[in-house]
């Protein structure tokens, strides 16, 4: 039997909002330590990896490893019935389950809703994501990053990200004209979620499709900060921590000069 009880149902709502527009069906791998989800968009340009450790749950029981093929639209419909402060319980048999139960308990205990969602067969294999030493890490406000991606998509469909020692520049151009947004490395890190820290090993200059970045920033409500990791010959990584018990990591392949 797999059973996991989350005190703050709102977190699961946010996680679904973060993945459902990028990956319709995803494999939720549940083992004794954590729930991990990995899925690629249909064009294989972007990948999302979500990890939520057992410690995030009020109660977590996983007698045998089980993989739940979830349709994220169905799951999202159920979670739309949940309030942020509802308790959410996920339950599934651990011998090739064909469905998963979700129970929502209102905070005052007066309302209990239970749903059963059919699991889907997904035959995508898990990708091997190599450990990479990145040339640059940019940590910044997640709201700021969402704003930059939204504003720049008015000017073009791609953003060029260039990192130097002192700053990170986001540029986009199209028929409207050219836009550059430069963030300077914050000298003083007084309020972490408002400062920008650039950790640079060597300069990077990469271009990415804004359409995907604007899908990634749906995870903004999950964390005040976001970390971008960049290297010339590697996909961009956009990471949102889930408190200290997990993360949502997006990987995006760059656009390259012909």
């Amino acid at each position: 039997m797999f059973e996991a009880k989350l005190q703050q149902g709102g977190l699961l709502k946010k996680i679904l909002e973060s993945v459902k527009d990028l990956v319709v069906d995803g494999l939720w791998d549940c083992d004794g330590a954590a729930i991990t989800l990995q899925g690629m968009d249909s064009s294989h340009v972007a990948l999302v990896e979500m990890l939520l450790r057992a410690e995030a749950f009020e109660h977590y029981r996983c007698d045998r490893n089980v993989t739940l093929g979830m349709n994220h639209n169905h799951l999202s419909k159920i979670l739309k019935c949940a309030n942020n402060d509802d308790i959410v319980i996920l339950k599934a048999a651990d011998q090739n389950p064909d469905s998963c139960s979700l129970i929502l308990e209102s905070k005052n205990g007066e309302k209990t809703s239970d749903f059963v969602v059919s699991l889907v067969r997904i035959d995508t294999d898990q990708l091997g994501i190599p450990e990479t030493e990145y040339s640059a890490h940019v940590k910044m406000s997640s709201g700021e990053f969402q704003r930059i991606c939204r504003d720049l998509s008015q000017f073009g469909d791609a953003v060029q990200i260039t990192c130097s020692k002192q700053d990170v520049k986001f540029s986009s151009s199209g028929e409207t004209g050219k836009a550059n947004i430069t963030l300077t490395h914050s000298a003083t890190v007084d309020k972490e979620e408002e400062s920008v820290t650039v950790d640079l090993k060597e300069p990077v200059d990469l271009t990415f499709a804004l359409r995907f970045l604007n899908l990634f920033t749906k995870a903004t409500p999950i964390s005040d900060t976001v970390t971008l990791s960049l290297s010339q010959e590697a996909p961009l990584v956009v990471e949102y921590k889930i408190g200290d018990s997990g993360h949502i990591r997006y990987f995006l392949a760059p656009k390259i000069q012909e």
């Binding site: 294989h44 990948l47 990708l127 590697a234 990987f251 392949a253 656009k255 390259i256």
Partner: peptide, 14 residues
């Protein structure tokens, strides 16, 4: 203009 490449260049598709 620049061409979008896929992740299969970077991550081994098993």
């Amino acid at each position: 203009s620049k061409r979008q490449i896929t992740l299969s260049r970077f991550f081994k598709l098993p």
